[in-house]
């Protein structure tokens, strides 16, 4: 089985496992079991009727925005643990919203992944992380700014809950309309650009990106095998050149570059240490 199919299978299984409370989709009631004390690695709103775990970004904000400030040891520990193991492979394999965006991108439409402001827009997710997830919730108590004003996962949860519960449906107002417009922007943009939310907005991806260079699951590039054909950079939808920066903070470990490399110069996974002499040393 090829890598794409395996990744698709893992993404689908991960989405189903993280939303295994299927009954909730029909009753409109959220899961209340003990597993919700554990944060899932990807972005999955805990108010989604199917969710059996907690969203790490929502949990982080609830600690930071509490009336009495509590340092989020537990959530931070889980985030560091997930990051050290897999880095942004979590975005590529385990995140339900990433999976949804991959499905949307499969719809035949005009596609464009490389454009001028892309480089600058990438920094937006760090601003979102600092401002909406950390600074503003710490400044204004009881307001999870990212969840309240941006998170499209919460909007999807709201749509599902309102479909099953007339009370929720009748309470929808301007805030929901704003979030729904944002969700539509992400979906429509997602038809053209691959994973726009992950690239430009997701604070969770911003956090995991810091771990890409040191994570257990990471990419290796063999300069002795590389013929600099550029095939890897050309196929990358996250606009990374794996031959130059195999562990870029933007790489979500989809493995498309590994598949197209004609010389097997790229390797993705856990690798035994082996000293590779540089080309200049071998001449």
């Amino acid at each position: 089985m090829d890598r794409k199919k395996i990744r698709f299978g893992i993404q689908a299984a991960s989405t189903l496992i993280q939303n295994a409370n299927f009954k909730g989709f029909f009753t409109g009631k959220i899961y209340e079991g003990a597993s919700k004390s554990v944060c899932v690695p990807g972005l999955n709103c805990y108010s989604c009727p199917g969710a059996v775990g907690s969203c790490p970004i929502g949990s982080l904000q609830s600690f930071l925005s509490g009336i009495k400030f509590k340092f989020p040891y537990y959530v931070l520990g889980l985030l560091i643990f997930f990051g050290a193991v897999a880095g942004r492979a979590i975005c590529g394999f385990l995140c339900p919203f990433g999976f949804l965006q991959d499905l949307i991108y499969k719809i035949p439409f005009y596609k464009k992944n490389k454009f001028k402001i892309d480089r600058f827009l990438r920094y937006l997710k760090y601003v979102v992380l600092l401002l909406l997830v950390i600074i503003l919730p710490m400044t204004f108590n009881l307001t999870p700014f990212f969840c309240k004003y941006v998170c499209p996962e919460g909007t999807i949860a709201g749509l599902m809950l309102s479909a099953a519960d007339s009370n929720v449906r009748s309470a929808l107002g301007p805030l929901f309309n704003w979030k729904f417009i944002l969700l539509m922007i992400f979906i429509i943009t997602g038809l053209i650009v691959r994973r726009p939310f992950c690239k430009y907005v997701c604070p969770l991806g911003a956090i995991y990106g810091f771990f890409n260079k040191i994570a257990i699951y990471r990419m290796s590039h063999d300069p002795n095998k590389c013929i600099h054909c550029g095939a890897c950079a050309k196929v990358c939808h996250m606009n990374v050149d794996p031959s130059k920066t195999p562990n870029s903070m933007e790489c979500i470990r989809c493995g498309d570059c590994v598949d197209v490399c004609p010389k097997n110069a790229l390797y993705l996974g856990v690798k035994k240490e082996r000293k590779v002499p540089k080309k200049s040393e071998t001449v």
């Binding site: 959220i30 899961y31 209340e32 003990a34 919700k36 004390s37 554990v38 944060c39 709103c45 805990y46 108010s47 969710a51 907690s54 929502g58 949990s59 609830s62 600690f63 509590k70 989020p72 040891y73 537990y74 959530v75 307001t143 999870p144 969840c147 309240k148 998170c151 919460g154 909007t155 949860a157 709201g158 809950l161 929720v168 309470a171 929808l172 107002g173 805030l175 929901f176 704003w178 979030k179 729904f180």
Partner: peptide, 23 residues
């Protein structure tokens, strides 16, 4: 030790009005 998983659970078992756009 500081019982933070209980805080996470407490928050997650109620519908978050802000998250779903009703806050």
């Amino acid at each position: 030790y500081l019982r933070q998983p209980e805080s996470v659970l407490h928050k997650a078992v109620r519908i978050c009005m802000e998250c779903i756009g009703l806050g």
